[in-house]
Amino acid sequence: MQIFVKTLTGKTITLEVEPSDTIENVKAKIQDKEGIPPDQQRLIFNGKQLEDGRTLSDYNIQKDSTLHLVLR
């Protein structure tokens, strides 16, 4: 499925993911596309910070959902 990740600069990254993917996996995909190390990434969905060990389906993230990427 496709999800979107919006950065603070207003750029939107499109990712191909599975609901069973962990947040860690998603961060690795963002690193592949953008070169941002996962330990600098914080992903936010519906105002909640997403934890590495959880999956997209844990957070009820579905296709065409938009996550927000904050760098630390």
Rank of each mutant, 00 (worst) to 15 (best):
R54W: 15
G35V: 05
N25I: 15
R42V: 13
L8Q: 14
N25P: 02
N60Y: 08
Q62W: 12
I13Q: 05
I23W: 01
V26L: 14
L15D: 00
D58G: 03
L69N: 01
N46H: 10
I44L: 03
I23L: 13
S57D: 12
T12D: 05
K33P: 04
K11Y: 11
A28G: 10
K29S: 12
M1L: 13
E18A: 10
E24D: 02
Q2K: 06
T22Q: 03
Q2S: 10
T7K: 15
E18H: 06
Y59L: 11
G10L: 11
K33H: 14
K6I: 09
L69K: 00
K11T: 15
L67N: 01
D39Y: 12
I30D: 00
S20F: 07
I13Y: 08
E16A: 08
N60Q: 07
Q49H: 12
N60R: 06
Q62E: 04
G10K: 12
Q41G: 09
G53E: 04
D58S: 15
E34P: 02
R72T: 14
F45Q: 09
L43M: 07
D39R: 04
D21R: 09
M1Y: 07
T66I: 11
Q62Y: 12
N46G: 11
D64F: 03
D39L: 11
L71A: 04
E24P: 04
S57P: 11
G53M: 04
M1R: 08
H68P: 01
G47R: 06
K11E: 02
K6P: 01
I36S: 09
I3R: 00
L15F: 12
K33D: 05
Q31A: 09
T7I: 06
E51I: 11
T55N: 15
I13T: 08
Q62L: 13
E51Q: 09
V70Q: 06
D39F: 05
L56D: 00
R54D: 13
Y59M: 04
I36M: 06
D58W: 10
G53Q: 10
T9N: 03
L69G: 01
P19N: 10
F45R: 08
T22L: 07
R54P: 10
I44A: 15
I30L: 06
V26P: 00
T66N: 14
Q62S: 08
L43D: 00
D32K: 05
I13N: 08
P38N: 08
I61R: 00
Q41L: 06
E16K: 07
L69I: 07
D21W: 11
L43H: 01
S20N: 07
E24A: 08
E34R: 11
A28E: 05
G10A: 11
T14I: 03
K6Y: 06
D64I: 14
L56G: 01
L69R: 01
R42Q: 15
A28N: 03
D39A: 13
L67Y: 01
G10H: 09
Q49G: 11
I61P: 01
E34A: 10
G47P: 01
V26D: 00
D58R: 15
I13H: 14
A28Q: 08
N25D: 02
A28P: 04
V5L: 14
S65E: 05
G10R: 02
V5Q: 00
E18R: 15
T66E: 04
E18W: 08
T9A: 04
S57L: 10
R72L: 03
V26K: 00
I3K: 00
E51T: 06
D32A: 13
E51Y: 10
T14R: 09
R72A: 11
T66V: 05
T55L: 04
T9M: 13
F45H: 03
L67E: 01
F4E: 15
L67Q: 01
Y59D: 02
E24M: 03
L56T: 15
T7Y: 04
V70G: 04
E16D: 09
F4W: 13
G10W: 13
E24L: 08
D21A: 10
T9E: 09
Q40A: 14
H68Y: 05
Q40F: 06
K33A: 09
K29T: 08
K11D: 03
Y59F: 15
T7L: 14
S20V: 05
Q62M: 10
I36K: 09
T12Q: 05
L8D: 02
T7Q: 15
S20P: 05
K6M: 10
T14W: 10
N46K: 03
P37A: 05
V17P: 03
Q41Y: 04
L71F: 06
G35I: 04
E34M: 07
I44W: 13
I13R: 11
L15H: 01
N25V: 13
P19V: 04
D39G: 04
L8H: 03
T7E: 05
T9L: 03
P37H: 14
V5S: 01
G53P: 10
I13K: 02
E18P: 12
H68L: 02
D58V: 12
G47A: 11
P38Y: 12
L56V: 10
K27L: 06
L69E: 01
G10Y: 03
T14S: 09
E34D: 02
E34K: 02
P38W: 10
E51L: 05
I44V: 05
R72W: 06
K29Y: 09
Q41A: 15
K6F: 06
I3N: 00
D32W: 12
K48W: 06
P38R: 09
I23P: 10
F4V: 07
K27Y: 03
T12I: 09
T22I: 12
G53F: 11
K48P: 02
L8W: 11
D58Y: 15
P37L: 03
T22R: 11
L56R: 00
F4Q: 03
L15W: 01
P38Q: 08
S57Y: 06
S65Q: 14
G47I: 07
V5M: 12
E16I: 07
Q62N: 11
L67S: 01
Q62T: 04
T9P: 05
P19M: 12
L50P: 01
